[in-house]
Design a binder for these strands. Structure first.
Lengths: 203, 203
DNA sequence: AGGATTTTACACTAGGTAGTTTACTTTTGG
DNA sequence: CCAAAAGTAAACTACCTAGTGTAAAATCCT
């Protein structure tokens, strides 16, 4: 019982956020009027403004919400006595799962839509979002320190991996020119990315 | 003398297109009103409509214009008796020069802005724009046929190269989160992309 | 010079949007 | 049960935008 008392007010608020998410993703932030949004949420326009002081506040609130939902992943740490390729592959697959998740892409879509003409604000958002890009960096450092990778600039290597991933499962999906990757496609992408990478950097 | 008679009308038209390019890129298609645009071009709004029947026509015309300007590149064909890495490197560098050119990125910026919420139309534009991606494919085919590359799926290989390139010199610049690459950065990117690629696929 | 073409300023139509106000109804909770 | 809190519909403000109509003025061409 400790979690059971969604007030009517809270239900309305959730309905508004749900409608905003759908409308902003499908039709865009600028192409969704507050009237349409209220209608979609089956709520009066005044109620929208009772919960959110302005359209801007609603957008920001929604993005924080999506960000919270999309924010967790991990593929494990470096292990000295396990096969390099297997480890890297697993790690990359975890990264793919996070970056290519519907939540993450939809969040980015709203953010890009909203910030496309505000490069400074976009840069800041990107930094927040790119928190993901650290787990692979950590692993590369550990593997390099252990002498199992050679000729490796961590920054560049990490970027190469992410470029190989994102070019296939993030950017095209963000732009909706390609569908999301399924389980097997993700696996194969991880597989061949790890293979290409290790061909060059394995000690 | 054969090229010297820009009529006043033509000058106005150019001024409008120049202003449109600037305004659409800096402030976005939807955030630029025809009044602002006319003011920026130092032309009366009526003149804008005398030259372009509607905002839509202006946008399409501008994109065709930018497309024409951005459209030419070549890095040479495959040669059987030249060093693989040198050839590929040169080819990649040519591709980078095209994809990362200001013209090409600005074109894509206007296109993405305009088509972000019209996935079908965007897909069509992307196909037009990605004509670039063929010269590397051609080269890979030739080199593979000549037995100097192994384990290579042309489609995947070509995509890997393009992902490695675009992740560093196209997507971030399209979003204006990173500046354009200079000559040396381009060269180094081509260099390490070719190196990574050939480590894996060289026969 | 003089008629045709183009440009200009400006008023105007028609429609959309963020946000507010009002008068009324429903839900909630002590 | 009843007062406070929250929700509702609808009209309303104030502003923005694409596109048009018009008559006068600048420019072009022969």
């Amino acid at each position: 019982m400790s979690e059971k008392k969604p007030t009517r007010s809270e239900l309305k608020r959730q309905a508004i956020l749900r409608a905003a998410k759908q409308a902003f993703q499908e039709r865009g932030v600028n192409n969704t009027s507050m009237d349409e949004l209220a209608a979609l949420a089956e709520v009066s326009k005044r109620t929208v403004y009772n919960h959110f002081a302005s359209k801007e506040v609603l957008i920001i609130t929604l993005m924080s919400e999506l960000w919270r939902q999309a924010t967790q992943c991990d593929g494990g740490d470096y292990e000295a006595d396990t096969d390099l390729k297997l480890q890297l592959c697993k790690l990359i697959e975890a990264e793919i799962a996070a970056i290519c998740s519907r939540e993450y892409i939809e969040l980015n879509r709203v953010a890009f839509d909203y910030f496309f003409h505000q490069p400074e604000a976009l840069r800041q958002q990107m930094e927040k979002f790119s928190a993901y890009e650290t787990s692979i960096t950590r692993w590369l450092k550990a593997a390099a320190a252990d002498g199992r990778l050679r000729d490796l600039d961590i920054e560049i290597g990490s970027k190469q991996i992410h470029n190989l991933i994102k070019g296939s499962c993030f950017w095209p999906q963000l732009m909706q020119v390609n569908p999301l990757l399924d389980q097997q496609e993700r696996h194969m992408l991880a597989e061949r990315t790890a293979a290409l990478f290790l061909s060059h950097y394995r000690a």
